[in-house]
Design a protein around this nucleic acid. Structure first.
Lengths: 155, 155
DNA sequence: CTGCCTGCAAACTCTTTGCACGAAT
DNA sequence: ATTCGTGCAAAGAGTTTGCAGGCAG
């Protein structure tokens, strides 16, 4: 899905829900879909303000659930008391995350067996699966061996 | 591993690390190992205070990393901005969690393929896997069908 | 005795919310 | 004109930390 298509989908979602299409909501949308990597709420605020400097932190936090519910944004919780997000361009939530603890990089790997597992295990407990996540936390061999890694977060 | 064995292991771990064996640390240990379900830091504080009412919240929070590092406690982050813990009696971390979102119950299911997956996927990225987690979030059929569920959290 | 450990309360981080103003429909 | 959306700042939840006194070794 292109960013243009996603923007139209977002506008349509807002209208359908009786929500207003405001400049701030569009700026936050643009900021989110300009990202190539996972981002936090605070980073989203920074980028949205670069587009429209009237955007406030509150509006970012109020927009995130809307974009998540519309399936345009995917939440990625890696257990750091800090949530990450990314545009859900391919509408694929059968994805595992491999988290490099040294470089703070999140790799995403297709893992279609997750939903099979979720269904299988839920049915035995008389539950209806909603979502599943599979995450691997790891250390960086490149960093250890060479002292640097291109994925390393700038500090 | 029995609770007695775990207690001795904890004491030995403290001594090895040059840490002191205090009444508060032991009370927190006892409180943790008396639990049958997953618990939060706050619940651990309550139970520890029932054993030794001098235990403070700060000491609970300072003890949790010690018990986690000694592998006596296992952290279970289910993405709720609230961490859960449980005694790691069987020393088994190849476990998936099935989380009932309606009843707040966490089921644990053995999932030995997790470490295979972690190794396999990490090696392709030149990473060394440290841990992995697999979690399924689900709704409760029993609650929906009958209006009650024995796993339901008391409110 | 020495220095780690403790409780207390304040600080911290991330997120949510009440309020009065402002803008979309 | 309405009514929802917004920014601001304060509140909230969970956790961490500085400090002065206390207890294990």
């Amino acid at each position: 899905m292109s960013n243009d298509a996603a923007r139209e989908k977002y506008k349509a979602y807002l209208v359908t829900k009786g929500l207003r299409v405001t400049n701030q909501r569009l700026a936050i949308f643009e900021a989110a879909f300009a990202q190539k990597e996972h981002f936090t709420a605070e980073e989203l605020l920074d980028h949205a303000r670069a587009i429209d400097d009237s955007v406030s932190r509150a509006t970012v936090y109020r927009s995130i659930p809307i974009m998540t519910e519309s399936a345009l944004l995917r939440e990625v919780d890696i257990g750091k008391n800090l949530k990450y997000y990314r545009p859900n361009t391919d509408n694929n939530n059968q994805v595992a995350q491999v988290i490099c603890m040294d470089c703070d990089k999140i790799f995403e790997i297709s893992a279609p067996f997750m939903s099979w597992y979720g269904n299988s295990v839920s049915s035995k407990l008389n539950l209806t699966p909603v979502s599943q996540r599979l995450q691997v936390s790891a250390h960086c061999n490149t960093l250890r061996e060479t002292g640097t890694c291109k994925n390393r977060a700038q500090g």
